[in-house]
Amino acid sequence: MKNKLVLFAALFCFVLHSCVIMSPKKYKALVAERDSLSMRANALVDTVAMLRADTARLHREIREAQGNYQALKGDYSSLNDKYGALNNNLSASSSKVNQLSADLKKREARLKEVEDALRKRDEATNALKEKLQKALLGFQQNGLTVDIRNGKVYVSLTDKLLFPSGSIVIDARGKQALSQLAAVLNKETDINIAVEGHTDDKKVINLGQIKDNWDLSVLRSTSVCRYLTEVEKVDPHRLTATGKSEYQPIDPANTTEARTRNRRIEIILSPKLDELYNLIKQ
Rank of each mutant, 00 (worst) to 15 (best):
V6A: 09
V6F: 05
L7D: 11
V20Y: 09
S23F: 04
Y27M: 15
K28V: 13
A29N: 05
L30F: 15
V31R: 12
L37D: 08
S38G: 12
S38H: 08
V45P: 00
V45I: 15
T47P: 02
T47K: 14
A53F: 05
D54F: 03
T55G: 15
R57H: 04
H59T: 09
E61C: 07
I62D: 11
R63T: 12
R63H: 09
Y69R: 04
Q70N: 06
A71M: 02
K73T: 09
K73D: 14
K82P: 03
K82L: 10
G84L: 14
L86A: 08
N87K: 12
N87S: 15
A92S: 14
S93G: 09
N98P: 00
S101R: 00
S101M: 12
L104V: 07
R110D: 13
L118R: 09
A124M: 11
E130Y: 09
L136T: 02
Q141C: 01
L144T: 00
V155P: 03
V155G: 06
V155S: 05
L157Y: 04
D159T: 03
K160V: 11
L162Y: 01
F163V: 11
G166D: 08
S167C: 13
V169N: 06
I170R: 02
I170S: 03
A172S: 13
A172H: 11
R173K: 14
R173L: 07
Q176N: 06
L181P: 01
L181V: 00
A182S: 12
N186Y: 00
T189K: 07
D190N: 14
I193R: 08
G197E: 04
D201F: 05
I205D: 03
I205G: 00
L207M: 07
G208P: 07
D212V: 06
D212M: 09
D215Y: 07
L216V: 03
R220Q: 10
C225A: 12
C225R: 07
R226G: 10
L228M: 06
V231G: 01
K233T: 12
P236S: 15
P236A: 12
P236N: 08
H237I: 01
L239Q: 00
P252C: 03
P252V: 08
N254G: 06
A258K: 02
I267N: 03
D274C: 02
L276W: 05
L279I: 05
